[in-house]
Design a protein around this nucleic acid. Structure first.
Lengths: 194, 194
DNA sequence: TGTTTTTCTTAAACTAGTTTATTTTTTTCG
DNA sequence: CGAAAAAAATAAACTAGTTTAAGAAAAACA
């Protein structure tokens, strides 16, 4: 059983960023800035309206970032699993986003101040934001320029694991279509590969 | 007439980042990393396939970042005008994007190395990437969750100037619809406000 | 295990947005 | 200025995706 105060996954991440082992002091510094938290499946990590939200580095589990539009409909923006970051980069402004846990999840969380401090020491931490941007841009273009069919195929190619871990209605929202339409796509696929 | 070697707009930008006046040395350092370039309307700034692309800080004019899908159709990702940055953050990997000038445009351009150097000195330069991310995320959610009608209204509210400077077919592509459909939206709007 | 709840499928009627084609309007430029 | 080119509007037929509803299948759980 994993010790609740085990920060080894986090330290390993920063060693990869730094490209060399961390000293005891460095580890201590990192540990002191983070807080270990766990969220049970369906539990909220962040809700629209909250200010000063934290950044989350996921040790184990699966989180989902989404909005709820004025008709109460949810739109999944992205999912984040083990060894990925998730948070609202707009913090400390009040967020418009929701984050909840799709599986029981353990994270290391850090506030904006801590995050900035570490970004100044571990320059490559900022690279992550760049990578997130690139990812989102690709996703944006993909949803804009391709049909839901094609986007589903792409997802299977690029992230088959997600499809295993997620119920279809979350995938459909991620692809920007209704569950009913995704079901049609799946039926057509099944017919094709008969 | 503006001198081709006038870097004052650029220096002013970095003074805002730094929150205090720059020394002569600092100005010199910045100037040495950038290159001043001009692009005539319709001229390409960047083409898909190119590697090691540059970052552009716009002094005057209007640029457009877009992709061309496999059917030859263009999708406008974003526009950038005076005092805004534009570039492919994926550099030095070969880019999938095109940038061209929608007006005669003058820019200060910098390569990836220079950009990183300055990011280490002027920490707030990285904030820009965050802001870009937030902007794109909002845009993404908006296109996903709203109708083209609503997105057009939002654009008018948030960026009326763009609508003046751009032909409708560029706006329609930005909104993720065809020119024909935007024309319908405009006709309906005109009818309403009769 | 059986019951309840959640998820998925199918169908049918509908709508937001596309496509293709034609005409009109506006802009460009020799 | 007038001709040519580019942009915008309109119409009509179409399609990708939605909505609502009802039943089937799967998962949760007591």
């Amino acid at each position: 059983m994993t010790n609740v105060e085990d920060y080894s996954v986090l330290h390993k991440y920063f060693e990869i960023l730094k490209k060399e082992p961390l000293s005891a002091d460095e580890k201590e510094n990192i540990t002191s800035l983070f807080r270990k938290e766990t969220f049970r499946k369906k539990e909220f990590v962040m809700k629209a309206g909250e200010a000063n939200t934290r950044h989350y580095y996921i040790e184990k589990g699966l989180l989902r970032l989404y909005i709820i539009d004025r008709n109460g409909k949810e739109f999944n923006i992205l999912f984040a699993k083990e060894k990925q970051w998730l948070g609202d980069l707009g913090t400390p402004s009040p967020t418009s986003y929701y984050i909840d846990a799709l599986e029981n999840t353990s994270v290391f969380s850090i506030d904006e101040d801590g995050f900035r401090k570490l970004s100044d020491i571990y320059f490559d931490l900022a690279t992550n934001i760049r990578k997130s941007y690139i990812f989102l841009q690709k996703r944006f273009v993909s949803i804009l320029s391709k049909t839901a069919d094609e986007n589903y195929e792409d997802l299977i190619q690029q992230n088959p694991e997600l499809i295993q871990r997620l119920p279809n209605y979350h995938i459909s929202s991620y692809l920007g279509v209704t569950p009913v339409f995704l079901s049609k796509i799946l039926a057509k696929r099944a017919r094709k590969s008969d």
